Amino acid sequence: MNTCKICNKRLVGRKDKIFCSVKCKNYYHVNLRKATALVVKELDNILHRNRSILLEIMGKNKTQCTIERVVLEKKKFRFKYHTHHHINSKGKTYYYVYDFAWMAFSDDRVLVVRKPLAQVT
């Protein structure tokens, strides 16, 4: 005998039924979206902060620069958070935050590059 995932009432009907009513089903999904939204907002804030730090370092006109890792650390850059990564033909990994990428060198220096955004047509 199956019971409702929210209120534990006995379920009547289909074998794969999870909720006893539309009210319980809506309650479940609304709260699931709320929990997801909180985590996504926190991660999005970290990613935007990382991008802002890279933009501040690069300025508006540079397309790449090399800096000391400690400079990024002092600005509270969080290396663990990125949107995606790319491994180039030489096996070096670039980590991206939207349109900026960085690659760490073994001598505690970091190459920062800006990828041009695609033109919207």
Rank of each mutant, 00 (worst) to 15 (best):
K9C: 10
A118G: 04
K60I: 12
L38W: 03
Y94F: 10
T66Y: 11
Y95V: 08
F19Y: 12
L38T: 11
V22A: 13
A104F: 00
H48L: 12
W102F: 15
E73A: 15
R49Q: 04
R10W: 02
R49H: 07
A35T: 12
F79W: 10
K75N: 07
V70L: 09
Q64M: 09
I67H: 07
G13L: 06
G59C: 11
K23Q: 03
V30D: 02
V113N: 04
K74M: 14
L111T: 01
L111D: 00
K5R: 14
D44S: 12
V110N: 04
L54Y: 04
R10K: 13
Y28C: 03
I67N: 09
K90M: 09
A37G: 10
K15N: 12
A101D: 01
I46H: 05
F19C: 02
R10V: 13
V110H: 05
I18H: 01
C65V: 14
N88P: 00
R114E: 02
C65K: 10
S106C: 02
F79G: 05
T121F: 06
V97C: 09
N8G: 08
T93I: 12
R49P: 00
N50A: 09
N88V: 05
Y98D: 07
F77R: 11
M58K: 11
Y94W: 10
Y95L: 10
N88H: 00
V22I: 14
H29D: 08
K9Q: 11
D107I: 06
N31Q: 14
K17H: 02
L72R: 10
M58C: 09
L111Y: 01
H84M: 03
V70H: 08
K90H: 13
R10H: 07
L111G: 03
R69P: 00
H48E: 09
S21N: 00
N26Y: 03
Y94Q: 07
G59E: 11
N88M: 03
L111C: 01
H29S: 08
V12Q: 06
M1H: 07
L54K: 02
K23N: 04
V120W: 04
A104N: 03
Y98H: 10
N26S: 11
N8M: 08
V39K: 15
K9P: 01
L111W: 01
A101W: 01
K75A: 14
L38C: 10
G13Q: 04
K15P: 00
Y94R: 07
K9V: 04
Q64P: 01
F77L: 01
F79P: 02
C65L: 15
V120T: 11
I18N: 00
Y96I: 07
Y95W: 11
M103C: 13
T3M: 06
V22T: 15
N31K: 14
R109W: 01
Y28Q: 02
D108M: 03
N50K: 08
R51M: 12
I46M: 05
Y98F: 15
K17L: 06
N88L: 00
I18L: 11
C20D: 02
E68W: 06
T93Q: 08
F77W: 05
D107C: 03
L38F: 08
N8D: 14
R14N: 13
Y94K: 00
I67L: 12
T3A: 06
T3E: 15
C4M: 09
G59T: 13
I53G: 03
E73T: 14
A104W: 00
K62G: 01
L72W: 12
Y94G: 01
